[in-house]
Design a protein around this nucleic acid. Structure first.
Lengths: 161, 161
DNA sequence: TTGCTCCTCACGTCACGTGAGGTGGC
DNA sequence: TTGCTCCTCACGTCACGTGAGGTGGC
């Protein structure tokens, strides 16, 4: 397999920086396939795939140490069967991590969306063109309540400028 | 409103550490409602809500600087209408952020799930009880391909121990 | 009075970012 | 030969973690 990708190519292909690629090398999780006489690194398509996997696992919130142990799954396994079992174990654990993150993110997105709708509905009425009116709603979304605490208007008991 | 929550209460209620709460105070985004004579902080229920919002926005990947500007939305707005407009703008932007994160996470989770199924299916057959057999599949999931690169077995051209 | 919690420094860490100054390669 | 990319230090930063040593409050 040809090693014809530079560190800049990896950075462009993944949307990250050259520094990040270099840092992963310092941490021992992505070694270039070749290094030229002048010190320029050369990577293969497989290295790019490995890098993409690293970013995927980072997206799940895994620290580099855990990612290293996933990538090094083989060492520490004496038989193919043991490797297969550990592989399955790792996959199940990280799918769970992904689910938990997804649940939290979905909840946050739902709250923000509810806030947006509440703000848009209330502000389309002409009577109260101030967010404090939205905050006064029963069951106003959290972000509306919190932002409203740090402000007031003529309808409240403090003054909005 | 009674300020009867300690920093430890906030930590317990959110599942984070006291140090994090203190750090947010250092950064000026969560000030205790009261401080006792002996220096002990006291927070209200509203402070807890504010803290929860901060964690929600952190979940979206917002840095503390941006969170500060969201919480300080009021300052810099001269009229209620301007505040409402900015509020809407911020909500739309952060809902988009959440969608992008959700998309990436869903993709990663799907890949891990496909990998798990591939590993389980292939390994239930008795012919090839080694993950290298899974990696040989057409369109094997990325994590399988990458892990397989750093290992081999009797079926490959290198040796699995 | 006894614990448990809380306090204040202050240094450590993780995952990079950001120049400064110099060289390689199509 | 001229740029553009890549290189190596090396210090900075962001969001906390982690003790050490001391005090507060039900």
């Amino acid at each position: 397999m040809r090693a014809d990708l530079s560190s800049g190519d990896l950075a462009r292909a993944t949307g990250k920086t050259v520094r990040t690629v270099r840092f992963y090398e310092e941490e021992g999780i992505l070694t270039p396939a070749e290094v030229s006489n002048g010190g320029h690194r050369r990577y293969t398509k497989d290295d790019l795939e490995r890098l993409r996997l690293i970013f995927d696992l980072r997206e799940l919130g895994l620290p580099l140490g855990e990612i290293r142990s996933v990538l090094d799954l083989r060492s520490g396994c004496d038989t193919a069967a043991e490797l297969a079992a550990r592989f399955e174990q790792v996959l199940v654990a990280h799918i769970q991590q992904a689910e938990q993150r997804l649940d939290r993110l979905r909840r946050v997105k739902r709250e923000l969306t509810e806030a947006l709708h509440a703000v848009q509905e209330r502000l389309s009425g002409l009577t109260h063109r101030c967010p404090c009116a939205v905050a006064a709603m029963s069951h106003a979304p959290r972000i509306v309540r919190v932002i409203a605490k740090s402000l007031t208007c003529q309808h409240g008991n403090r003054q909005f400028p």
